[in-house]
Write a protein that binds this DNA or RNA. Structure first.
Lengths: 231, 231, 231, 231
DNA sequence: GATGAATGAGATTTCATTCAT
DNA sequence: GATGAATGAAATCTCATTCAT
């Protein structure tokens, strides 16, 4: 039923293999803009340059399409984060900084739309919510908690509640992603996620680091952030 | 809202006057659960103890109902925050703490669903998004920025970028609200918003406050947070 | 949620109660004409004097509608047949005659379309086929077999294979029903089911062959059938 | 069907010539199972071991395929029946018996599905119904009527209404075919069409009732049927 | 004021049909 | 001759909205 004929002519094949990804990209964009229910498959199809019917060659239903969009989205990023942590030997605050900056890069890609999507549809897709909670939320939280624990053990950080501090760690970036896909259109400028990230890290440094006895002398080497325009 | 009809026996009139609020409450709950598009007016009606037709006596359309839900929701809270700031004479960090704690209280009320709603539907209701951005987002950000500026001027805080720091200030609480209405069902325990709030403030204190020469003696009196289970 | 208001005004109520039956009648006619798959709900609706949407107030899906049509159709007739047999004390051949004639009456009602429907759709609705086989086919076959057995026991009939003879008993009438809803339109005249029934009974009584030495005396009293145009 | 292409190595050509028949076989099976509308060409194609597109090399449309299935199906059988009658010189009842038994053989072939199909789709394919009515139904009914007339003329049969009796003659077998393709799956055993056929013929010969004055002498030579286990 | 039966526009989904390869 | 990716018309089904009562 396959492979028999000359059906493997290069162009068609390439097309067929590219289609799912094209559709997923289009779907992510549409879902991000309007949410699951308000997205019409006709729009997704148009955006992907095909017709409605074609979608059903690759995905059994709107719901399946949605799940596919979410499933294959952020998991790889999490894995990359885990790899970074596993290899790193730098100071814990630097590691956190790297993780956040790495993550901030996603903030300008289409993937940044996923959190908003999940947030919205968790109620309508409990199964998907569970999947995402397990494979993305918990794993990424575990990642940060591991670093925090390491920092405490090494004496870099004060004793702290890993879970709550993790939430404080990720909140600004996460919120920035949500912002980009909701209010940014109505705000004046563009949110500079990277700047936000640096500001956040600066706040963290002076809060997290044991750095109690910062005497004036050593202070300068740490305040590298833009906060202090004039010094 | 209307004249002395012959049907105005007290109880009935009370009912009649309560209706809009009852409907708005039901609508908020439904919209929060499923989002705008996925919410069926039949469900809203059932939750409010009326029938679909009745909704149209009070709201011209589903869209109008949604807008009403959002409009009358958080604006009063903002005003209260502004009043607090206007009257306050306490240290800036304490003022921020009060604002956040005050806000945290909303986290357990139905109002906590609004941010998620707005976030989600901003794309479908640009007009509403603009309204909310102006009346809630900007005003509340201005509030925090004012306090920050005051803190800097008074020498309590280091120089800082008001907007970015504000985003860091509000992020954990905001995220907690979103969490409550999305993942909480799939997570093990319940997120203790008030504990989160205190953790966050503790982080802020040691990051924001000039507190450079915290000598060991004074340090202890400030770390009141639960982070340090055994001391 | 009900019974509270003045909703029980007579006209509406009557309408609401009549609707399901009206729809079922329309549906039976449509399904009989075109079969299940080829029937469009829009046609059923039009025939019932309502719109598509209304159908869904009473039946959850096309499939459910179909099942309802079949379920409430012939079971009562079977029960009536069973009652006739239970009460009867007449000669067995007369009883069979009564059953067949009674049944022949259905041949001119809309119910006569059911066998064709079931026959056709048994493959697509196994569950329904099972229901019908049990509640209609088996019960009616059991009915005839009981009469046959009685006839044999009383010495009225020759020994015979109940099941096979039953099939021969019911075949002409059943086929006539199928005919009415398939070829009658393309044939010249109309099939006179009642005449067919009488012919069939006559065959049962005497067989096809020139009633061997049935002596003239007894022969006359029995050959009441139209076969013999010239007498 | 076509010239000496360069591709005409024997096997391929045989394949090519076999295709239409293979497709018709597959189509008959599918149509019989699900009916015309519910049959998907994809299934027909799969069953025939080709792809959807290939069907269109041989048949212009689904409808044409359906018509082809029906047209080439039973007409030859009718012709064979006509030949049998033309040649026969046996007693009329024996001739009828032969015709029925001959026909009963079809009951176990795929052709047995045709009557069900035609029955179902007569409404949707009036033209086809007319064709079938003319070429199959009328011709086969004429066949039986001719034999009946012959029997009456020869004094073998009583006077009778040819059309109605013909319907009684064919009903059990026809119904058995319909049964096979509808309820057989849901019934316990398998219907023995040949046994049914013999029972039916026995009924025709003697009727149901205890052969009134068939005197013992002549009776024995006729009752050859299995009904009477012990005599 | 409240009801709830009815509507019909619009969405998802299916599948016969086409056509470049 | 055969393929199978793509199409798009048509069907089912949903639900915001209306309106007679």
């Amino acid at each position: 039923m396959e492979g028999r004929g000359p059906s493997s002519c290069a162009r068609w094949r390439r097309r067929k293999e590219a289609r799912p990804a094209e559709i997923l990209t289009a779907a992510l964009a549409s879902f991000a803009e309007r949410g699951f229910a308000a997205t019409r498959l006709e729009d997704v199809a148009a955006r992907a340059g095909v017709t409605k019917g074609t979608l059903y060659l690759y995905f059994r239903s709107k719901e399946e399409l949605f799940k596919a969009v979410v499933r294959q989205s952020l998991v790889p990023s999490i894995a990359r984060g885990e790899a970074i942590v596993a290899q790193s030997d730098e100071p814990s605050i630097a590691l956190i900084e790297r993780l956040l900056l790495e993550w901030a890069k996603l903030g300008t890609t289409p993937l940044s739309a996923i959190p908003k999507l999940i947030l919205t549809e968790a109620g309508n897709f409990p199964e998907l919510a569970r999947f995402y909670h397990q494979e993305v939320v918990q794993r990424s939280m575990a990642l940060f908690q591991a670093v925090l624990r390491r920092g405490v053990e090494r004496g870099e950080f004060r004793p702290l509640d890993g879970e709550l501090v993790t939430r404080c760690l990720v909140a600004p970036l996460l919120l920035a992603m949500l912002w980009r896909h909701s209010f940014e259109a109505h705000a004046k400028g563009t949110l500079d996620i990277s700047a936000l990230c640096r500001t956040h890290i600066d706040l963290l440094k002076h809060g997290l680091t044991r750095g109690r006895p910062k005497n004036a002398a050593t202070a300068t080497e740490e305040s590298e952030v833009s906060h202090e325009p004039a010094r």
